[in-house]
Design a protein around this nucleic acid. Structure first.
Length: 646
RNA sequence: GCCGGCGUGGCGCAGUGGUAGCGCAGCUGUCUUGUAAACAGCAGGUCGUCGGUUCGAUCCCGACCGCCGGCUCCA
């Protein structure tokens, strides 16, 4: 990321032997010397190129966050002697450090730790780098068993972590004056002193498995955020607050859209009338679009005898994530976790001709997945969900066109729901775990090549996801970015050569022979529930008019005009508009406030002036107004806004 | 599933070893005139569930259920 405007110095005879920092402007966090990040204290030699790495640059931020992580660890060890260190890398927006304390941290502990960190930064302790041999490192860090483990893991050059680089081992010492305050195994680089960390804040503590493996010991992780300035920190905290206001779980309650009654069970949502409106509008629209795209609407039950899921191959693989079976009349019945097996039976219900292909079946299929208790999250991770699920049965030759067809269909649908910022992900099999995937290498590479080619043709960014495939075939997924930049897996398109074989699916070809079709699985929203959750956050609850539970609220300036607005409402209602008149005893101002809080797209206000003119006055969600609009025009305007899905 | 935190009227929150309050919402009444909160009164909770400690538990302890933050996982 070396930009032209940044200072770049070539070391000559006169500057050789000085430090990198002495050649750079004050706002440099570290230096880049011949492409490598170095401490500002790095002693340069002739012929080297020294570049500035400002605090606000990506590398500068990573360094200052890493330095903040060190300060955190130092604070923790000063307050809680005996606490062992894990790792402490910079991450997006901040940093964390993992610890093994004698007892987990309390909120009070975190406050004390933050205060101690401030003390350390005020002391202007220097970070100084020291190269050590492996023997020295093992000796100095003998009491830190996690660090010892990392030293043991030190691989050849190229395999690097924040603790141990590929080449040499280094320890960073923190000095206050000449006194050694603390040290940590670290490859660096760091800011010159603890005082140079411009702004930080401790955010939360949580548990994390050592080296990310749930078979390992669980450590206590402390998360912090750190920035190049106080203002940046404030802005970050403001964004977090903003995100919290958009949280679909909160908006779901405030807007009376849905809830999760404890009595039903974890991860099982009920949609209230207002959420039901959104759900129905989405479903109606998507059903219509599927019909237009050549899909046939079908219906299947929620449960099945277990044999079906053995045939599909799901049961031996995914019994863990299915609800346990119910025994009835000598058979075990399972709640379905996927719809494809049942669609396969529809395909197989009679002989099929090549003339019917691609045969496209579609339904809103409700499935149940026993997600682990800790992963359930609002509408985005539930145990009962409805997929807008389709299966296209086609010849292998037709498969590429069908995938392309589905991709463009999916993308146009997302666009209609205001999501137009996305990238694709290609999930492939993990060759090191052949037992998790069914089918031959040949089949996988054919299927993967088809998906990859189609994905690349969209011109969208394509990200690899090795090992992320379903057991029966590779997958393209659409990762959509919402209004505040978070990404969500929405649509999926999967190429499956396995289930057609398992179910013995076949069609009669033009040659009179029987052939096996391939099937392309696709969910456009993914799950209706998740999509509603994502849309809620994307729009911060202010849904476009066509999806709004209440599209128009009539607000009389005085109760004398209730009747007039009821007449206006009736004219809207015959156009299919969801309209209410607030004829309660509240003042007009209160009614506006209520409608505003419910994020109603159109408020129609009427007083004496409007009645005389046969008009109404618009107030929009953004607070702007358009007064004295003739009723016929107002109706037309609202109808148009809804019809155009604007 | 794991670690930690939390669970008080519909919602948001106080609070205490001697069976509970506030704001909003609700109901009733009096009001209502131009773009984000009129006023008054009333009603509403066996303090998540089940055990235990105690003369006595919403408060202390345990289990379970649920929620939250992470980790792991996500066909």
């Amino acid at each position: 990321m070396s930009e032209n405007s940044l200072v770049s110095v070539r070391v000559d005879t006169s500057t050789a032997g000085t430090t990198a920092g002495s050649l750079l402007p004050k706002d440099s966090a570290v230096a880049r010397v011949d492409g490598e990040l170095r401490d500002l204290a790095y002693v340069v030699s002739e012929g080297q190129t020294v570049e500035q790495v400002p605090y606000g640059s990506p590398d500068g931020l990573a360094v200052l966050r890493h330095s903040a992580a060190h300060v955190l660890a130092q604070a923790v060890q000063e307050l809680f002697p005996g606490t062992l260190l894990g790792i402490g890398p910079p991450i997006e927006n901040g940093f964390y450090y993992d610890f093994l304390p004698e007892r987990p941290f309390t909120p009070e502990d975190l406050a004390a730790i933050e205060k101690k960190m401030s003390d350390i930064t005020r002391q202007r302790q220097t970070f100084s780098r020291r190269v050590v041999s492996e023997e020295e490192a093992l000796k100095e860090l003998a009491h830190e068993r996690f660090k010892i483990e990392l030293i043991g893991l030190k691989g050849p050059a190229g395999e690097e972590s924040v603790e141990v680089g590929g080449g040499e081992l280094t320890i960073y010492d923190n000095h206050a004056g000449s006194e050694l305050m603390w040290k940590d195994l670290c490859r660096g680089p760091h800011l010159p002193t603890t005082r140079d960390i411009p702004a930080f804040k401790i955010m939360r503590s949580a548990a994390a498995y050592w080296r990310g493996d749930q078979n390992n010991e669980q450590l206590q992780r402390i998360y912090g955020t750190a920035w190049a300035s106080r203002d940046d920190l404030k802005e970050h905290l403001r964004l977090l607050e903003e995100a919290e206001k958009r949280d679909h779980r909160r908006l779901g309650t405030e807007l009376d859209l849905f809830s999760f009654p404890d009595e039903i069970g974890s991860g099982l949502a009920v949609f209230h009338p207002k959420g039901g409106v959104i759900k129905r509008e989405m479903e109606d629209y998507v059903r219509q679009r599927h019909l237009e795209e050549g899909f046939q609407y079908v219906g299947t039950p929620h449960i099945s005898k277990e044999g079906l899921f053995h045939t599909s191959g799901h049961l031996p693989y995914y019994a863990d994530t299915m609800f346990p079976p119910m025994e009835m009349e000598g058979s075990d019945y399972y709640l379905k976790a996927m719809n494809c097996p049942m669609h396969n039976l529809i395909f197989r219900s009679r002989g099929r001709s090549y003339r019917e292909l691609p045969l496209r079946l579609f339904e809103f299929g409700s499935v149940y997945r026993f997600e682990k208790s800790g992963v359930i999250h609002g509408l985005t991770r539930v145990r009962g969900l409805t997929q807008d699920d389709s299966h296209s049965y086609c010849t292998p030759e037709q498969a590429p066109d069908e995938v392309k067809h589905l991709l463009s269909f999916v993308l146009s649908l997302l666009k209609d729901f205001g999501l137009d910022d996305y990238y694709l992900e290609l999930s492939t099999r993990d060759d090191s775990k052949p037992d998790k995937f069914v089918g031959t290498e040949e089949e996988w590479s054919v299927a993967t090549a088809v998906l990859e080619k189609c994905a690349l043709e969209t011109g969208l960014q394509l990200v690899a996801d090795p090992g992320g495939a379903a057991f029966y075939g590779p997958k393209i997924s659409v990762q959509a970015r919402d209004a505040i930049g978070r990404t969500w897996q929405m649509s999926t398109i999967q190429y499956d050569f396995n289930q057609p074989a398992g179910f013995g699916l076949e069609y009669q070809g033009a040659d009179g022979e029987r052939h096996q079709p391939v099937m392309i699985h696709s969910a456009k929203f993914g799950s209706i529930e998740r999509f509603i959750g994502v849309l809620t956050e994307h729009y911060a609850g202010a849904f476009p008019a066509w999806l709004s539970p209440v599209q128009v609220v009539g607000i009389p300036v005085h109760s004398d005009y209730d009747g007039y607005l009821h007449d206006v409402a009736a004219r809207l209602r015959v156009e299919g508009i969801r309209v209410e008149v607030d004829d309660s005893d509240d003042r007009m101002q209160k009614k506006i406030r209520n409608a505003q809080k419910q994020k109603v797209p159109f408020m129609l206000i009427a007083g004496g002036e409007d009645v005389e003119a046969g008009a109404v006055s618009f107030r929009f969600r953004d607070g702007s107004q358009d007064n004295g609009i003739p009723v016929a025009d107002a109706v037309a305007r609202i109808v148009e806004a809804v019809r155009s899905r604007a």
